Simulated assay, not measured.
Amino acid sequence: MKFAIQSKGDEYSESIKRQMEQYLVDFDVQLDEVEPDIVISIGGDGTLLHAFHRYNHRLKETSFVGVHTGHLGFYADWVPDEVEKLVIAIAKTPIQVVEYPLLEVTVRHLDGGKETQYLALNECTIKSTEGTLVLDVEIRGEHFETFRGDGLCMSTPSGSTAYNKALGGAILHPYIDAFQMTEMASINNRVFRTIGSPLVFPKHHTCVLKPISDVKFQITVDHRTIVHEDVKSIQFRVANEKVRFARFRPLPFWKRVRESFVTE
């Protein structure tokens, strides 16, 4: 068993990182930051997103587990007081893995050059850098609508509790192979009209956004922000790859939802 640790970087998280590294090495678990079997995230959901993008080239070999040092997160299952219990579980018990779907984003350019592809664990957002976003929305190769507004958010099921929820999107169980589109302040009047509701796409469907005019696009992929020019289209679909989470105890999804949003 080989492990790596991604820390939030604050003093408290770093102290827990050092503690866990020492415990795991004492249990003859090998520290390997290049090809780890398991990556331990210490911080919050943002820290785990950084860990995911650091190791997203090893999704078939690497699983993730989180220790939260701040507010309870959806990806961070353990608390600092449970570090010794988690270390023993990693060192002594077989890893039970659950897999969640990811979002594949493909950006194609007008010059026909090399396309750019991203994987999102939470969501991808599209905005114009020059005011109102205007683009055609195609579903399975057919025109669906022309969107005008601040932007669009495409989220995974596991990311549906994040920005997607703030936009009025539905919470999807992460075992569902799907992705969701929600609108940001769409323009709806007698002249312009959009669906106005979140759309959920199954695994075998693609959604393609095509700009009406040549503008710069601000695209976020989880915590990263990228500006693209000369965009021909942006395609979204459920990725072939999946993210793997190490589970050492039951952690019902709806219980996490209730504790995060309902329980006082």
Rank of each mutant, 00 (worst) to 15 (best):
G168A: 06
E229A: 13
H228G: 01
E259Q: 14
D230I: 00
H204N: 15
N240D: 15
S197F: 07
V39D: 09
F74P: 06
V105T: 14
S160F: 10
Y12I: 12
A178T: 08
I226C: 02
T146G: 04
N56L: 01
G196K: 02
Q30P: 00
S128Q: 06
K216M: 06
V107P: 02
E229S: 15
H71F: 09
A170F: 10
L31S: 09
E21I: 09
G113C: 06
R148K: 13
F52S: 05
Y75F: 13
P252E: 12
Q30A: 10
I195R: 08
V39P: 05
G141M: 08
F64H: 10
S63K: 12
F253D: 04
T106A: 02
N240S: 14
T206Y: 03
G113H: 09
P250N: 15
L199R: 10
M1G: 12
V39G: 11
G159W: 06
K165A: 08
F144V: 03
A162S: 15
N164R: 03
T93L: 12
K92P: 01
N188K: 13
Q96Y: 05
Q6M: 11
K85W: 01
F64S: 09
S41C: 09
I88S: 09
S41W: 03
E145V: 01
E33S: 13
H228S: 01
G46D: 08
T146D: 03
C124F: 02
L251S: 15
I42E: 03
K17Y: 03
V105K: 00
R258W: 12
K210M: 08
V243C: 02
V262L: 15
A170Y: 07
T182P: 02
G168S: 06
Y12E: 13
V208D: 07
G44K: 08
E142H: 12
Q218W: 05
H204P: 00
P202R: 07
D222P: 07
Y100K: 07
I212A: 05
T106Y: 00
P198I: 01
P94L: 08
E145P: 04
F248S: 11
Q180K: 04
R249H: 15
Y23E: 15
E183C: 02
H71D: 06
R258Y: 13
I226P: 02
I95L: 09
G169V: 07
V25M: 13
V39K: 04
A76I: 00
S213D: 11
D222G: 10
V105I: 14
V25S: 12
Q96I: 04
V87G: 14
P174M: 09
D81G: 10
R54M: 11
